[in-house]
Design a protein around this nucleic acid. Structure first.
Length: 573
DNA sequence: GCCGTTTTCGGCCCGACTGTTTTCAGTCG
């Protein structure tokens, strides 16, 4: 059975939860959580690292003990230490930690004094008003627990960035309209353009924080006010989204923005740097001798104290950006304006909702120099895929359009299916007529990692193979990536001058930020394309660029920032 | 449990809000 990085992370998080309830040393618990996060965020498979006898202790936050535990998990699929804790402490108790307002101390107390072992018994105890009798609890705590139990089932998991955007933008406008609001900005993972967003963080400067809070909590979409203070409020919107609003004075704007943008790991890194030189950072500024404020108005000013240039929010994940900044090696990140054309889009010839002409017109309006039509090939029957004959007709149609149209070049392409055995779905005789060939997997997602890797490698052997589209096949919140060896695919791509795609569709965002960084480290070029099935979806490009930025990509790492003449050379592999 | 151009022991980010207290612990981000 393959052991995924997320399996290791889950085991470590379970250990942390249970140790927490047992009241273990908080820093020991943190070590497990940090390790879980490190392993989950690796672009390499920890299973492969163990097999190749790589030194796990090189990883941040992994020492002798945790390295050994990772090896044990990889080799046996489980961790004896976790099983031991489970004998002492009921693992069901960990589920109670997900109840808002219940932490390890309270769970432990409820467990010990009321003999509550699971969520059902918790509900029963609350309904019988046993909870409010406990010391440290009261009526309100009990009501809160009951309410949380009720909504738990419909609790929203992290939302896709695009869904968050739909909620965030109108709220932003509403707040902006308040005359008491001076500066306003998003912070948190939304500002870091993470592919999923847990809650929204908004930062405001104002002379009248009380009025701002009043305005915020009376927003028409607010369903529930979780907390309302002078400087901080939390609400739940009808959509289930949690929104945190913080108000600070303008002298602290930079420090607060830095702090609330996170990531948490990035912040901790900076704070530790500060401690090294006897400074203290909090959301109000950078302080010397405890109360002597030396920075805080802008983020730039704060980074400057540590001799660092401004670090873009997308990079703030503690993946080496602080070190890179200090060494002057930060990437000059790609921007949406660098994109010269879209290399994946569909028309009504296969499963698109707009005609070829409509798609091309929309691409031209976006100011692109070139635009590829990549309708599906024949074996994707549900998408009305093209056979050689129909693709031939589309090629003729595009040739005629190119003769007539000015200012944009329409590229002839096709999203060719990679069949189960690794052969391509269309004959070479037609592939050679195309400007480039996009290849993708749309079937047999559950092959073993070995077979799936072999399948893709074989497809890449075809000299007309240019771009591997949505390489992992994952759909956020819907479908896991198929199992294969990404490192081998990247090595092969580099060897054969093949390109990996960042599919910018907000549901796909495939490859993800970790793999994007890995491709950069390995010297594999990337294309960013929208996979648009309608003309309005050409606007998805920004999500792909944001993902690329999170993967440290610069203009030069992405092929469709180049002119067609240069691109043409790349495609002749 | 991890980590170290002051340390192999003794630290480990920091502050707001809530609910319960009556000065604070617990939780959260």
């Amino acid at each position: 059975m393959p052991i995924h990085n997320s399996d290791v992370a889950n085991i470590f998080n379970q250990v942390a939860d249970l140790l927490d309830i047992e009241g273990a040393n908080i820093f020991r618990i943190r070590a497990y959580r940090d390790a879980a996060r490190t392993v989950k965020g690796l672009s390499k498979r920890v299973e492969d690292m163990v097999k190749e006898k790589e030194d796990l202790q090189e990883l941040p936050g992994i020492g002798k003990d945790l390295a050994k535990k990772i090896e044990e998990i990889v080799e046996t699929g489980s961790l004896e230490f976790l099983e031991e804790i489970k004998k002492r402490t009921n693992p069901e108790l960990a589920k109670m930690l997900s109840i808002s307002g219940l932490g390890p101390k309270k769970v432990s107390k409820i467990n010990k004094e009321l003999e509550v072992e699971n969520l059902e018994q918790l509900q029963e105890a609350a309904e019988k008003h046993k909870i409010q009798e406990l010391e440290g609890f009261g009526k309100k705590s009990e009501e809160k627990i009951l309410k949380a139990l009720k909504t738990k089932k419909e609790e929203a998991p992290r939302s896709k960035l695009i869904s968050a955007e739909e909620i965030a933008e109108p709220l932003f406008e509403y707040l902006e309209d308040d005359e008491n609001v001076d500066k306003i900005a998003f912070a948190g993972s939304y500002r870091r353009h993470k592919e999923t967003v847990g809650d929204l963080d908004i930062l405001v400067t104002s002379e009248n924080p009380k009025e701002v809070m009043e305005h915020f909590t009376s927003y028409e979409d607010v369903e529930n006010i979780q907390a309302k203070g002078k400087t901080k409020s939390t609400v739940i919107l009808r959509s289930g989204f949690q929104v945190d609003l913080r108000v600070v004075e303008k002298e602290s704007y930079g420090a607060a923005l830095l702090y609330f943008t996170g990531s948490k790991a990035h912040n901790i890194k900076l704070r530790n740097l500060a401690l090294d030189i006897d400074l203290k950072i909090n959301e109000y500024g950078v302080f010397k001798n405890d109360d002597d404020k030396i920075a805080g108005k802008t983020e730039e000013e704060i980074y400057d104290i540590f001799d660092m240039p401004y670090i873009e929010p997308e990079l703030r994940e503690d993946r080496g950006e602080v070190e890179a900044a200090r060494e002057g090696n930060l990437p000059d990140l790609i921007t949406p304006d660098d994109i010269k054309g879209d290399l994946q889009a569909h028309s009504t010839h296969s499963d698109g909702r707009n005609s070829l002409q409509e798609m091309v017109k929309a691409a031209k309006e976006r100011g692109y120099e070139y635009f590829a039509i990549t309708d599906h090939s024949q074996s994707v029957r549900v998408a009305n895929g093209l056979d050689e004959k129909r693709l031939g007709k589309e090629i003729d149609e595009i040739d005629k359009m190119n003769e007539k149209i000015d200012g944009i070049q329409i590229l002839k392409s096709c999203e060719v299916d990679i069949l189960k055995d690794g052969s391509l779905d269309l004959d070479d005789s037609i592939l050679k007529e195309l400007d480039f060939v996009l290849c993708a997997i749309h079937s047999y997602f559950d092959l073993s990692a070995e077979d799936q890797t072999r399948r893709i490698l074989k497809a890449m052997d075809n000299k007309y193979f240019n771009i591997l589209a949505h390489p992992t096949g994952r759909k956020i919140g819907e479908r896991k990536p198929y199992d294969f060896d990404m490192e081998k695919i990247m090595e092969a791509a580099k060897e054969r001058n093949c390109i990996l795609e960042i599919d910018a569709h907000p549901v796909r965002l495939d490859i993800n930020d970790h793999y994007a960084k890995m491709s950069k480290d390995m010297g594999v070029k990337i294309s960013i394309s929208t996979d648009a099935h309608a003309k309005n979806e050409l606007a998805y490009m920004k999500y792909g660029v944001w993902q690329a930025r999170r993967g440290w990509l610069e203009k030069d790492d992405v092929i469709n920032t180049r002119k067609w003449k240069e691109l043409e050379k790349i495609f002749k592999r």
